[in-house]
């Protein structure tokens, strides 16, 4: 482990978040968030609902702008890049959305091949072949390619979303709550797919979840987000041994502890 950490320090982080702050109205969502994700590793951010996990991903993707702080990718500050360079850098990221976010006006294969056709200008026939092979990688057959997202189950939507996220062989993949809304068996199938696809692509992965089974399966390192800050980072083994009361409470899923869930009703 010591060697692994030494190696990390030598490398330029693939993604580096430095002192990120983000406020919505009076609510401080990110409050000085710092995190480094190294090339080829899989980092999982855990934390309760409303702690800023999705906001963190959206800030990296450029869908939201942080109020202060900055984000680096491959050592380049995103806010200092030209619009074109920034779009190109962010274009390396594939994203699996919590709800799948599939385009319901397009068929499954058109969803998967969207970026190939629109941006890489690959011909339709060839793009379809690539889409079908990506669908096969996530365990979906050729027969699914022509149906529309409305006809798919939740688990299938996640798989199609995963196929779309890896269609352009991205060097970074984000997973937003990949197992939410799925039964335990399908959750495990998705977790295994995530592990294998990330491994096959040699990609860097950043996942946000509050599903501890998923975190244990996917993560090289786990970071705990609480009140807009990363309060703990460690490996899965370290997670089980930590004495951090916040992490222990979250992992145990206990209502008793330093993390107080806001319950405003009747107060």
């Amino acid at each position: 482990m010591a060697l692994f950490r030494f190696k990390q320090k030598e490398q330029t982080p693939k993604i580096k978040l430095v002192n990120l702050h983000k406020t919505f109205g009076r609510k401080k969502v990110l409050n000085g968030l710092n995190l480094e994700v190294y090339p080829g590793e899989s980092v999982v951010i855990i934390g309760g609902s409303g702690t800023g996990k999705s906001v963190t991903l959206k800030c990296i993707l450029g869908l939201l702008s942080p109020d202060s702080g900055y984000i680096e990718m491959d050592g380049h500050r995103l806010d200092q890049l030209s619009l074109r360079d920034r779009a190109e850098t962010i274009g390396q990221i594939g994203m699996l959305f919590q709800s799948g976010a599939l385009f319901d006006s397009l068929s499954v294969w058109e969803n998967v091949a969207f970026s190939l056709i629109q941006n890489k200008k690959i011909k339709k026939d060839e793009a379809r072949k690539i889409a079908v092979s990506k669908l096969a990688q996530v365990g979906l057959g050729r027969d699914v390619a022509s149906v529309y997202p409305a006809d798919l189950s939740g688990g299938m939507k996640k798989r199609v979303g995963l196929a779309r996220a890896i269609a352009t062989d991205p060097s970074v993949i984000f997973f937003d709550e990949p197992t939410t809304g799925l039964d335990p068996i399908m959750s495990d199938v998705i977790n295994e797919l995530i592990v294998s696809t990330v491994k096959n692509l040699g990609a860097t992965a950043l996942t946000i979840t509050h599903d501890m089974n998923s975190a244990r399966k996917i993560a090289d390192r786990i970071a705990m987000l609480y009140e807009g800050k990363i309060i703990w980072v460690g490996t899965v083994k370290e997670l089980d041994k930590t004495k951090n009361p916040y992490v222990r409470q979250f992992v145990a899923g206990s209502a008793q502890g330093p993390i107080k869930t806001e319950i405003k009703a009747n107060q």
Binding site: L61, A101, L102, S115, N119
Partner: peptide, 16 residues
Amino acid sequence: TMRVTEQIDALSTLST
């Protein structure tokens, strides 16, 4: 509907 189901965010992540 595309906005509330994150399809517009998905478009952005697909470099569109």
